[in-house]
């Protein structure tokens, strides 16, 4: 087998892994859009906020310390504890639920019945607010996130592929963990939406708000629940990406990676987010590998969108999205 083919196989596998990470971000968008028709621009910032909160709780950082110290002349910085990752994750999940409740109560409850563009603009406002709020609450320095996830080359895959191809494949342990977690997450979400009362209510709300209301479904509860789920997904994405690069402002920009995934997979399909992520991940990595060197490299950012556009032309609702039919 030629070297180039072997390398392409390695790139393909890494593309799949990268795609899973993109899909993790896209999932949060899908959940909210599916249930409320809102394209949540703040999803990337929610991942940042969740990761900041996780590190803050783990390391016992005093929230708003800078502000408190400036106002009262105190020297507060840390509570002096270091919590286990599991406890911190549960604490952060609780914070994300609280955030979802506040977003629903103070923003979207007042915008019921408004045009989608108004709701979208509200999420832009929310994104910038959360960004600044996260800064004030936890500070803007880069934080190391270590919840015990393994990183680095997977030795077993390296050895096995070396024995077969005389070249060991590089697969990051963190990417393998992300794949397993994403699979569990998607499976759980599908089970939840298909087999639980709240899940069925969520699907009913997604189909028709008015009809759901008329059969006694509490819209506010469902929306808080959906935003909480999206917040949890954001936390998972924040952990994965934050472990790779540290927790910092740039984490919010991972949303840019989710957009082509959504265009391709559809805004309303959970499996679509996964399949879309895999196609984008593999497509951009293979293009960079095969064509990148001929055109100066750095093709991934734009090629992902080209790929999504090509799919859009032939299937505007995305691969798994629901076809919108409006009758006159």
């Amino acid at each position: 087998m030629s070297d180039q083919l072997v390398y392409a196989m390695e790139v393909f596998l890494n593309g799949l892994m990268a795609g899973v990470l993109y899909a993790l971000v896209a999932l949060g968008f899908v959940l909210i859009y599916k249930a409320s028709g809102i394209f949540n621009y703040a999803q990337g910032v929610m991942a940042l906020f969740a990761a900041l909160t996780l590190v803050g709780i783990m390391d016992g950082q005093v929230p708003f310390a800078h502000l408190i110290n400036a106002m009262f002349g105190t020297e507060l910085h840390h509570f002096g504890w270091h919590l286990p990752a599991v406890v911190a994750i549960l604490g952060t999940a609780a914070v994300m639920v609280l955030l979802s409740w506040m977003v629903q109560k103070f923003v979207f409850r007042h915008l019921v019945g408004q045009e989608p563009i108004i709701l979208f603009m509200a999420t832009i406002g929310l994104a910038y607010f959360l960004e600044g709020f996260g800064d004030i609450m936890w500070g803007s320095d880069i934080k190391k996130l270590d919840v015990g996830l393994p990183q680095g080359i997977n030795a077993w895959i390296d050895n096995v592929t070396f024995n077969i191809f005389d070249y060991g494949f590089f697969i990051d342990n963190l990417d393998i963990v992300a794949t397993v977690i994403a699979a569990i997450l998607v499976f759980s979400l599908v089970l939840f939406s298909q087999y639980t009362k709240q899940g069925r209510a969520m699907r009913a709300v997604a189909d028709d708000h008015q009809a759901a209301l008329s059969v006694g479904i509490n819209l506010n509860f469902i929306w808080v629940m959906v935003w909480s789920l999206a917040g949890f997904v954001a936390l998972v994405a924040g952990i994965m990406w934050g472990t790779k690069s540290g927790v910092q402002f740039s984490l919010s920009l991972i949303a840019l990676k989710a957009l082509p995934v959504l265009m391709l997979g559809g805004f309303t399909s959970i499996p679509g987010a996964i399949v879309g992520g895999l196609i984008i991940g593999v497509g951009e990595k293979l293009f960079e590998f095969a064509i990148g060197p001929m055109v100066g490299g750095a093709t991934e950012n734009w090629f992902a969108y080209v790929l999504a556009l090509i799919f859009l032309v032939f299937r505007p609702q995305g691969l798994f999205g629901e076809k919108i039919i409006e009758r006159v």
């Binding site: 890494n14 990268a18 590089f170 690069s245 991972i254 100066g296 490299g297």
Partner: peptide, 21 residues
């Protein structure tokens, strides 16, 4: 050999696979 990374640089898997090769 020169290898570019697009802004912001959160994802560099391709670049480092190339360096590894």
């Amino acid at each position: 050999k020169t290898i570019p990374v697009d802004h912001p640089g959160q994802e560099q898997k391709s670049q480092w696979l190339q360096i590894r090769r």
